[in-house]
Each structure stands twice: as C-alpha cells, then as structure tokens.
Design a protein around this nucleic acid. Structure first.
Length: 233
DNA sequence: AATGAATGCAACCGCAGCAGA
DNA sequence: TTCTGCTGCGGTTGCATTCAT
C-alpha cells in the first residue's frame, strides 16, 4: 500500500476552515477519523493539536493576566509539570500555552537571578519565604488529600500581585518578585539534587473553588456564541 | 538601517494509559 | 487475557517576531 504523504508544519487558513467544519460536524473525538474524512493530509494527532491549541473557540487569546500568572505559580507548586491539570484550572488556556509561559518566564527569571547574583554575592533567598518551601517534603504530585491540610490561609488580592499567607496574627505578604525568586531557587535545588520541584505547601490553592472552573479539556465546544465567519471571510 | 540575540509560540515526537475487539 | 489503535500528555524543536546594539 502506498502511504499517503502527511503534511507537516504550519497550518494554512484553508486547513483551519476545513478542520473547524468537520469538528463542528463530528465533534472533537475520533481524530483519526476526522483527519480522514476531512481530506486533510494531516494525522489525527496533528488535527487534535491544532484544535486544542488554536482553533477551539473556547480558547482565550492574548497575554496571561496577573491573576492567571499567580494561579499558574500556585498550581505548579501543587502539581508540578502536570500542565494539563494546571490548564484545567485556567479556562481558555491550554497546557501548551502554560507550558510555554512557564518555560519562558522561569528561564527569564533564572537569567535575571543570575545577573543579580553576579552583582551581589549575597543570596537573597534567606527569606522566610524559602523556609516554607524548603521545609516542605511534599512533591507536586503528592495526593491532594494532604494538600489542603495546611493550617494556613492563602489569599490573593486581585490585581495586586501579592500572596497573603498565614493567620491574622502572622500574616505574610509576598510579592510576585519574591514568588519568582522562590520558584527559581526551588528549581535550582531540583537541578542540584535531581529531585522533583518541591511544593511550597503554603501555596495551597484555595481562593478559587474548583466549581467555578470548567476544564478546557471537557467535552464542550461550539456554543451558540461562536462565530466562525471570520474563517471564511 | 542592518544584523545578531532574545523571546514567544506553534507544532512535532515519543511515550503511557485506556478502551474495545 | 492479550493485542491494537486511539487519545492525551509532557518534552523538545524550529520558525517568526521583537528587541538591542
């Protein structure tokens, strides 16, 4: 049998239109089937990826908001590199997007940190902030039953880019800079010890109840508000 | 204005888990 | 129970754009 040559690389607008049409017709399952019936010279895998990461109308476009950034931080400390899990808590964001975001920003942060370290030989990481992470023995993948047992309150004031932690007497406030430094320092530890990223138990996730969020991987798409006319011009 | 570096993002690859035959 | 195909996930790569010099 002659295997039909599969297309690779960037998708054309025409391919997008075609894929959207067939997903609308058959749903976003059975990607191999979809790839075949659509006539696209793409693998089912490729079609799925294109849909999930780009064409899905439920997706949010544009920069991450500070709230989202904070949430990613918190969730990463909880789940580690479980991007799909994290994406599930961020409606309209894909695992790929979050993964890219994380890599970019952690890398940037690491570079900034390096610069700072070169300037000042004294490490700033002796803050009480790093205490809480280094004292944590939980891995990000630790089961959630223990995750919520910490007797700390974790609140986020919208738009303020700070985490408020602790009880009324011992309230601590962390800026995003501190958070990033913490992330960076934990990553260094990970690199050195070949251990998973230590979850800061105090970064528990509890200001956004799960019920408020719907997974981007849930089977829901094409609500009536979607308008694809721009595809067809 | 040119060009090299840095950054952001889309897409691919390989693997694991799951479901159905 | 085993096999096979499909789906989803995480890691990685490569290209396009933006920025700095």
């Amino acid at each position: 049998m002659v295997q039909e040559e599969m297309r690779k690389g960037p998708w054309t607008e025409q391919e997008d239109v075609q894929l959207v049409f067939y997903v609308k017709m058959f749903g976003d399952r059975r990607w191999d089937f979809l790839a075949k019936v659509s006539g696209l010279k793409r693998s089912g895998k490729s079609c799925r990826l294109r849909w999930v990461n780009y064409l899905n109308p439920a997706l949010k476009r544009g920069k991450m908001t500070p709230q989202e950034e904070l949430l990613v931080l918190q969730l990463h400390s909880k789940y580690g590199n479980r991007w799909s899990k994290i994406a599930g808590k961020l409606p309209g964001r894909t695992d790929n997007e979050i993964k890219n975001y994380w890599r970019t920003h952690v890398r940037k942060q690491a570079q900034d940190e390096k610069k700072n370290t070169n300037k000042a030989s004294v490490s700033p990481s002796s803050s009480n902030f790093s205490n809480c992470s280094s004292s944590s023995a939980n891995s990000p993948a630790e089961d959630s039953s223990t995750e919520r047992n910490d007797c700390v309150e974790l609140l986020q004031v919208a738009g303020e880019n700070k985490i408020y932690e602790g009880d009324e007497q011992n309230m601590m406030v962390y800026s995003m800079d501190e958070i990033w430094k913490e992330v960076e320092s934990t990553e260094e530890i990970e690199t050195r010890n070949d251990l998973p990223v230590m979850a800061s138990t105090t970064w528990d996730y509890n200001y956004c109840p799960d019920s408020l969020w719907t997974s981007t991987h849930d089977h829901c798409y094409f609500d009536n508000h979607q308008d694809f006319s721009f595809f067809t011009g």
